[in-house]
Design a protein around this nucleic acid. Sequence first.
DNA 1: CTGAAAGCGCTAACAC
DNA 2: GTGTTAGCGCTTTCAG
Lengths: 339, 339
Amino acid sequence: MVTIYDIAAQANVSAMTVSRVINNTGKISEKTRLKVKKVMDELGYVPNQMARSLVLQQTRILFLLITDIMNPFYTTLARGAEDAARKHGYRLLFGNSDESLDKEGEYINTILTTRVDGALLAPAGDPSLPHLEQLRKHNVPFVLLDREVPGIACDIVLGDSKDGARSLVEHLVKQGHRRIALVNGSSSISSARLRLQGFQEAMKLNDLTLREEDIHETTFGPHLDVEAMGLWIDTIVMDSMPTAIMAGNNVLAVVLIRLLRARGLRIPEDISVVCFDDFGLNSEVDPFITVAAQQAYQFGYLGMQMLIERIQERNSPPPWKRIMLPAELIVRRSVKTQG
Amino acid sequence: MVTIYDIAAQANVSAMTVSRVINNTGKISEKTRLKVKKVMDELGYVPNQMARSLVLQQTRILFLLITDIMNPFYTTLARGAEDAARKHGYRLLFGNSDESLDKEGEYINTILTTRVDGALLAPAGDPSLPHLEQLRKHNVPFVLLDREVPGIACDIVLGDSKDGARSLVEHLVKQGHRRIALVNGSSSISSARLRLQGFQEAMKLNDLTLREEDIHETTFGPHLDVEAMGLWIDTIVMDSMPTAIMAGNNVLAVVLIRLLRARGLRIPEDISVVCFDDFGLNSEVDPFITVAAQQAYQFGYLGMQMLIERIQERNSPPPWKRIMLPAELIVRRSVKTQG
DNA sequence: CTGAAAGCGCTAACAC
DNA sequence: GTGTTAGCGCTTTCAG
């Protein structure tokens, strides 16, 4: 490995001079600068970021932790975060927690041990609290995305889950649906809770009775219990079907639809389906599911901006900021108008 | 920041003893071990990975560079890579080059300066050669994904682009199509070249004449020139339309379909469309486009395995390996059978 | 304008 | 079992 000492020796200067050339600090004669640069090129010098970070106590690297890299919501969000980071000259590293608290813990560890300058994170849920406390304790600036964690005050970008859920229900009601079921993510996740609330409120507002068995709680994300959901469907189907089902996010909707079809049910002819979050790439090609779409890109972009501000104002920290982004109802073909 | 010296002082031992406790090396009396561990907990010690890497000359971190984080092919691949990395106790960091040579260069730089132990990369194309040469020169083990780069010998996982393209054309021909057009990625990308070749060969094999103007070359990925593609469509449409168009990948197919529809053309009634690569999440919900699907997950999983082997056999490097994964034709609803 | 010395937090090698 | 010394590659501080 080529070090500044190798260069110093070759160029007949001190290591310090080389360091100055690299970082453009201090005053250096044009002659030595050129000489040093030449040797650097010849030897193919690459600065050692670890050594530099060790003394500088900063990395100029930020970390983005998402919970499901196969979910278009998060990948779109990642693009937004990336764009904002680049704009401010930061590098961005990604991690994927897979909605798993353990994996999240590992990444928190990576964040801590690699001493990145800050982190943008979508927490796995309320139990993520200790992880966030770790970050706080070690002075790692962070911004939360999409999910609030009770017990910690911090910057956050949220979607208006309650209102989004409400608008989905309203839409169904306007189409004549009276009995509506819900498959939702874990109630240990703030967004899932709010979607449930919005759902319940909208039902009440429309004087619709909500049967307890019409609500099924499972998990967002990649490891959801498909069998349990199938069982639930069998139960409510046997028991005189609801005419519509709302899914707490896009992944749930996909699994739901697959299961419904496996039971010979057509959508929307036999049963209607709506969900939270859009589908990225090919929702453009053959837009099928009626959704409450979130501004995924903005989540990432704005969140990253907040994070960078927080880092820059480190010395005189501003009050915690909170951004709430609306969800937009996009009507497509998965809802049938009821007689 | 809490260091091993702080702990050493508190526990009345030397820093070295603390280091031994942390790393479980050497022999240490149970008593001191417990004492040290206790102090570590109390003080909330977090090892400094930078310092450790600096002396160890390794990070146990691997890097995955993909070219389009919004493309389901790459995110599925990422999941595969992640699973394989975890299995072997490595941490994985992601980067997204966005099909841009510049961004790729920045990430190459990050890879070099952060001294990760190895990299798994989907190169932007043939011009990525200097980047790979940099890695090689600095002894960073790497494995290529999806795209070959002439001029560099290395481990690689490839899809059978030629054969996949051929099977797509064969399918169209069997459905009675005679004039087939192609929108493809840049010919500076090996996979695009092979898809073109497969396309041409299949046309020839079926005695079909291929008009030069029926081939449009643009770029894969997020920054493709939509206008130019629109212009091309206008040209070939005016000039008595082809009955089918093949797209070099999924992103191209989406843009293509959007443009065709904007011109009032229905798919497949007015024109058929097929493409390379599948669509992830909601190709399950409403599978529309007939595709040559690649084993995205396997790309990542096998590639990561090769990378880790390469790192482990560092001292007696095995010959370069090359895996070619077949593409599978999945027939859906975007192709019409011609009279 | 340039250099020498010290230290960032850690571990390998060698002592005791 | 445990401690001392040196050094990973870099930059800050202070001299000149």
